[in-house]
Design a protein around this nucleic acid. Structure first.
Lengths: 247, 247
DNA sequence: ACAAAAGTGTTTCAGGTACACCCATGG
DNA sequence: CCATGGGTGTACCTGAAACACTTTTGT
């Protein structure tokens, strides 16, 4: 058949379309993901990705992802990175019937605790390590989706300016460094990292003569560069911080 | 709502799920894509990606892609690279109603002409340039899907050993070079390329003392390395071949 | 023997890594 | 004035690019 619909009388089996969200953030120097507790069967009581079914006949997929982000996580969709991750359609992935799920990947800065009195009750940040290790079992095939999400996030950190999406609107260079260190579990040399990120064109932009308070010398503040620049940005691992010498 | 299906009486609107294929190959040093001519409305007579609707309640998405590959392109699905590209679900993308399409990306070596007397009649390889330039209009949003496919293919060539998927089971190093040159439209120095690809671990493996006939000195043959190795393989552009000197 | 393509050796240069060192602030 | 983190200068080394040169075939 050149196209299945050429037979006007045959009707292909409809499926239910769900949208699930993999929302990552950085907390306590760990990569964490937002999970909700399922209130109904199947998998009642299990942790699961936030998500839901496509709302009506005219809702775009991305729009549905934005809506779920707002409803289930109470996060301002407009201000965070959101991209399609993949579509999961194994026939037996949902015991209720044929459900195909389009997963979206979101990256959020370390915002307020999600566990408010809102719709997002029962939502909580969990370290991804607990999931990849199998320590925290998930509903459906959500563990696979999260694994794919981690892989995607790492890959995009390497090749795109995505890292800034983990940071507040303005951030210091060492804030940014912690993103890379947490996601790969490596130690980077702060001095080399400092220059490396500044040399990448359109990656970060210094904010007009501001600074911040901590313990030592104040640090300059930066913002993400203009929109998403293309391929060749971004640092990479390599370079460890070690004892050094005198003064 | 924690999950949309918590209301047992409400039934989410079903959608039709299609699977479309972006099949790339290399012909005449150009990146080409396989297109079919639509026999029915909408877009009757227009070029379109091969594809069709999900077959039955228990067909996996990847299985459906394999099936379409076999039916519409008469290609041996087992021997070529196939991966999910993305899902396209804009509400108005199909005038007949709500159709969500999962696109798959396939990479094929320069095999026999697809235009056989089979089901794949009306199928033909087309240079992607003709599509990106808008010169050859496509049905639905298939031009966008192809653009995404090109981007994905380039990205994977850079960061994975995918290039061998464009080649026959055994190939020479200059065969492989032509893949990179065609996809990026650059000229590479054969001598540097030669060593570069050999240094990448698990990328290509020399085939036991074979060779081939052409005009000059015979070339060694190689095969793709063991399975898909991870991140850091692959060459990159840079290095032009120019006039040189004496002898 | 000559052209054409495969394959090797070597120089040069840019970028990454390591690390000594200076700067600014709080206690 | 000293601990702490921010920021600069610089030597070294590896890997990429350029290109002279040798090897092996067909005609």
């Amino acid at each position: 058949m050149v196209r299945a619909m050429s037979d006007e009388n045959w009707s292909p089996p409809p499926v239910l379309l769900a949208v699930d969200l993999v929302i990552f953030t950085l907390r306590h120097s760990q990569l964490q993901v937002l999970l909700v507790e399922r209130g109904i069967d199947p998998y009642r009581g299990r942790a699961a990705l936030p998500g839901g079914f496509l709302n009506n006949d005219s809702e775009d997929l991305l729009a549905a992802a934005h809506r779920e982000l707002d409803e289930e996580a109470d996060l301002d969709a407009a201000r965070l990175h959101l991209e399609q991750l993949g579509t999961y359609g194994a026939a037996d992935r949902d015991p209720r019937g044929r459900v195909v799920s389009v997963a979206y990947l979101a990256i959020a800065p370390h915002l307020p605790e999600p566990t408010a009195g809102t719709d997002a009750a029962g939502a909580a940040w969990r370290p991804v390590d607990a999931i990849t290790s199998g320590e925290l079992p998930l509903a459906f095939d959500h563990d696979v989706i999260i694994a794919d999400g981690i892989e995607r996030a790492r890959s995009k950190l390497e090749h795109t300016p995505l890292a800034t999406a983990f940071c507040e609107p303005t951030f210091t260079i060492s804030d940014l460094q912690q993103v890379y260190e947490a996601v790969w579990g490596v130690d980077l040399d702060p001095r080399n990292f400092y220059r490396k990120v500044q040399k990448v064109p359109d990656f970060i932009r210094p904010v007009d003569a501001e600074r911040r308070v901590t313990k030592g010398r104040p640090a300059r503040l930066f913002t993400a560069g203009p929109a998403t620049s293309l391929h060749p940005p971004i640092p990479r691992p390599g370079g460890t911080a070690e004892p050094e010498g005198q003064r």
